[in-house]
Design a protein around this nucleic acid. Structure first.
Lengths: 244, 244
DNA sequence: CGCGTTCTTGACTGCTTTCAAAGATGGTGG
DNA sequence: CCACCATCTTTGAAAGCAGTCAAGAACGCG
């Protein structure tokens, strides 16, 4: 029972995010909780998915940070996006899908299979939750493209940290303006299309202005509203009634 | 009858691309051909979809180039991706979806509604074709992120033109190494995260090396294989059996 | 306490932007 | 057929942002 409690405790943020995306009935909530017992842990730096290889099925990230990444022959790397607790990995609708990119565990990551939505419940419940989650992911991807294409280093860092804050918050993992942040500056650089050295200088600049406070696995955004207006940050809205 | 022929002729490239993505039975081919008669033309520079507004339903681009774009308050713009003949716009699974970005007509664009796949035919026919098309779009988006994050101006232009060639080719709109290319260098700059001036200099560099030949609405890639190896270009593979 | 990883700093280089203006090009109307 | 205009392309010079290389400091872990 104690073990069971620990299990559900560690998956609580993930379920919280999913439940907030739509209206799940009891049997769907149960299906979700049930799925979390078939969890699988991927150790830090290990691959969760490899580009070009078959995808087994959709998963939910229960805890940890995962990153979708492209590696170049010369060692350059680009992180296409991250997956946080409560977010989905490996959704695909075609037959015998192949992974469009590699996904690796930035920290230890706990996953569980995403339960299939009940047939005939399109537009409601789990199916709707997954659809909204995918739409949000689409939005994050667009935002990332705009960041890389048109923002300065300082704005990229600011805008991206704001997004991370929102997404961690959706899982209840942010406390006010602060949230756990396990990435090294080198990994941030891979996400933001910069070099590690330049991320460092940029972070220091923002720190000097008191806009961010990045230390030992946690970020704090003391002047979050000022940061938001600086980069014209906008919350995603993907459906007329959904909360983002 | 002559008018009818003209209609089907202009939508032929679009249907060709879609048909190549999966196995469509007669009734599905008929549904597609049928849908093209409900076409709608959007004049150059007009909006096809506006960010934050409700999406009516999925459409097929029958002809012309459309671009998904984010505009910043100060006039900067970033093109997230383009939609070519045979490609889909406005696919969304959630209820009452809102457009995640604006889409505008780079040239005159002809659209038609995408017919609904038959119920119970998931994994086959139209449903599969749409799924594969979405997976390809996902791939193009990842490729775009990697381009913007890690490639030099010259590699961005090269890699992107190679992708455009492949995608035009899928609709049968490429003739050997050449294909129609209606974009100005300014629009290319918005897609590639560069300035118009720098795109110009970059294009001239590639031209001098005989790698590209960009003129009056057409691109030719005389040394396409060399270009491909230069940027390590890879065709997308989204399913084990599908041709990309 | 020692070692590896991560963060920090400096000097220098170079790619890309900015600003401004001059050429091409294509379409239009006289 | 040509003049004219708007749009698009091309060019130059100067400034700036980010990358590179190299080394040292700080941190966390065993």
């Amino acid at each position: 029972m104690a073990a069971n409690f620990a299990l559900s405790a560690s998956s609580q943020p993930a379920l919280r995010r999913l439940a907030a995306l739509g209206d799940l009935n009891d049997s769907e909530m149960h299906a979700l909780r049930d799925a979390t017992s078939a969890r699988r842990t991927v150790a830090q730096y290990r691959m969760i998915q490899t580009e070009g290889e078959p995808i087994t099925g959709p998963s939910i990230v229960l805890s940890g940070w995962a990153a979708a990444i492209w590696s170049f022959a010369d060692g350059r790397r680009q992180i296409m996006g991250v997956a946080l607790p409560g977010e989905l990995i490996g959704m695909a609708r075609q037959q015998r899908p192949l992974a469009p990119c590699s996904i690796y565990a930035v920290t230890d990551v706990i996953l569980c299979p995403a339960p299939r939505p009940l047939a005939g419940r399109e537009g409601t419940g789990l199916a709707e939750v997954y659809a909204v989650s995918e739409a949000l992911e689409q939005h994050y991807q667009y935002a990332h493209i705009a960041r890389l294409g048109r923002l300065s280093a300082q704005d990229r860092v600011s805008d991206w940290l704001l997004e991370m804050h929102d997404r961690m918050n959706a899982a209840g993992l942010a406390q006010g303006n602060a949230f756990p942040f396990p990435l090294t500056q080198e990994v941030m650089a891979d996400a933001l299309g910069l070099t590690g050295v330049h991320v460092n200088r940029t972070v220091q600049g923002l720190r000097r202005e008191g806009l961010i406070d990045l230390r030992k696995g946690e970020v704090r955004l003391p002047k979050i509203e000022r940061l938001r207006s600086m980069v014209h940050y906008q919350q995603p809205r993907v459906a007329e009634t959904a909360r983002p």
